[in-house]
Design a protein around this nucleic acid. Sequence first.
DNA 1: CCTGTTTTTTAGATTAACCTAAATTTATTA
DNA 2: TAATAAATTTAGGTTAATCTAAAAAACAGG
Lengths: 221, 221
Amino acid sequence: MQELSLAEENYLKTIYHLSSAGQQQVSTNAIAQRLNTKPASVSDMINKLADKGVITHVKYQGVNITEEGKKIALHIIRKHRLWEVFLVNKLKFHWDEVHEIAEQLEHVKSPLLISRLDKFLDYPKYDPHGDPIPDEDGVISLKPRSILSELEIGTTCQLVSMKDTGDVFLNYLDKLGMKIGSKIRILDKIEYDGSMEIEIDHEKKVNISRQAADNLLVITE
Amino acid sequence: MQELSLAEENYLKTIYHLSSAGQQQVSTNAIAQRLNTKPASVSDMINKLADKGVITHVKYQGVNITEEGKKIALHIIRKHRLWEVFLVNKLKFHWDEVHEIAEQLEHVKSPLLISRLDKFLDYPKYDPHGDPIPDEDGVISLKPRSILSELEIGTTCQLVSMKDTGDVFLNYLDKLGMKIGSKIRILDKIEYDGSMEIEIDHEKKVNISRQAADNLLVITE
DNA sequence: CCTGTTTTTTAGATTAACCTAAATTTATTA
DNA sequence: TAATAAATTTAGGTTAATCTAAAAAACAGG
Ligand SMILES: [Mn+2]
Ligand SMILES: [Mn+2]
Ligand SMILES: [Mn+2]
Ligand SMILES: [Mn+2]
């Protein structure tokens, strides 16, 4: 995998995001807008990235990211999202404060650092915004999400998002120590009212109502 | 405090290190050697840094770092050393693997990040190489080091280095879970043989011999 | 399907951080 | 102390990443 400069990495990541959002073909103007640069600067960079084989380009017709480019972009995205998890879960930042810092941290180069960080964070699958974290090979395994209340006793899963995003509910989850990325094991389900006894992050055991469990989206591992 | 570029930060840090090692005046060649650049490049950068007021320079006579420059340099060094502590204590890197990574991480800009990291690491005073970590104001409080065996019962201190650096001793400490930066509280001293009962990092209680305690250098807080 | 508007590229500059080679200053030592 | 050697600076150039202004191509509405 090639070594790209910081600027090249930011361009490539932006092109990846734009191409997986809209339809492949990414326009010069769209890139310029995202990166707060001028279209002329983008044209320059497009040539450089095309020379390196991470995108293809037909004059006046936008760019496409190549397989190699996609792999590199996903590797940067992996680093970005892992650092975001670190900032929120370990350093206690709020999820809306971490993007800019991760934007810097994602460029740190070290073969070992990210795998150690991944382990330290206990191999999270989603970042604090609920976006999936690609694996070491750049693969995003977007397993279908389940509603917590529908899972069986004994199942282990990871919280990925909430249906109800109201303050009251989020505060309640906060009090329980539950956040996106938390590992949940279902210890028991009470037939009477549908409430559940669960274990959060291998440490805390709590009871949650049927109503709460209906609003928690998780993936099973 | 000014915003310096990555290259400027590396130059300034190098100048600080060279000037606090030898006598103030730092030569162009010495800087070039440290940074693996050419003297001509150093001359360029010297002008830039002098313009910004972080060093002073008299042609053909080397540079001196100013008070402002010192403060900035110490701030970068603080970040470098805190990241080193993170890499060793949290990500389980060995102390001789972390320098290059910290060399990159030290340049991440965020007002909050470092104070949160400092807290997360429990306000370490020394990095994994035994070098002191400057505080937020860039002050290094190099308290005199004591020998553990000479402290009183009830004292809390932090391990900063070992007199005996032989493998056997270091392995023994490793087994006890004791490393540079560990907090040690003296629970009891046995008059009979001078051995001590201590608590390591607020969790583990162990007994160490007089001989071991004689070889542990600590600072009291 | 022509023509005005938008998009994209090209041309030409600038700034930061380097370099080599040559000039200049300082240091050494015969 | 004069000349040789070493250190430092200057001159001139390169590459990466940006910009403005102008040219060229594509698009779109009548
Ligand atoms: Mn970035
Ligand atoms: Mn995110
Ligand atoms: Mn550095
Ligand atoms: Mn160190």
